[in-house]
Write a protein that binds this DNA or RNA. Structure first.
Length: 110
DNA sequence: AATTTGACGCAGC
DNA sequence: AGCTGCGCCAAAT
């Protein structure tokens, strides 16, 4: 069996807690593999038709919901984030700096 | 085997 | 502040 790059990305995305968001770059850096661009590419390939992947929690480095148009419903991303308690203005995460989750966080014992 | 395609990020202007 | 150009690199064609 083999683990594709896409699978690796998905594994990390599944770890993003509800109410928080991560970014393409943070995930790519954590994996030390590929690039931010490829994380988006990977999610587009596998995430579209799989509700078990919280792909809506991944935004760009500025907190903008750049992936929103890739979903079947263009409003899905925004709507779901709001439901999870994340505030959005102009397709952008409000207080992104504080909500931005980095995968390394889960390695720490608070 | 070469080319194209991206839900990106950043430097440089 | 915004805009442009370029590197990024796995997969599909």
């Amino acid at each position: 069996m083999s683990t594709s790059y896409i699978d690796s990305v998905i594994d990390v995305v599944r770890l993003i807690p509800s109410g928080r968001v991560s970014s393409y770059g943070a995930i790519a850096d954590f994996l030390s593999l590929g690039s931010a661009r490829m994380v988006g590419w990977a999610l587009n390939k596998s995430g579209i038709n799989d509700q078990t992947i919280p792909a809506h929690r991944v935004v760009n480095s500025k907190g903008v919901l750049t992936g929103r148009l890739a979903f079947k419903e263009p409003t899905y991303m925004e709507r779901t984030l709001i439901k999870e308690g994340v505030k959005i203005q102009n397709h952008k995460i409000v207080d992104f700096k504080n909500l931005h989750w980095h995968p390394e966080e889960m390695l720490k014992y608070e």
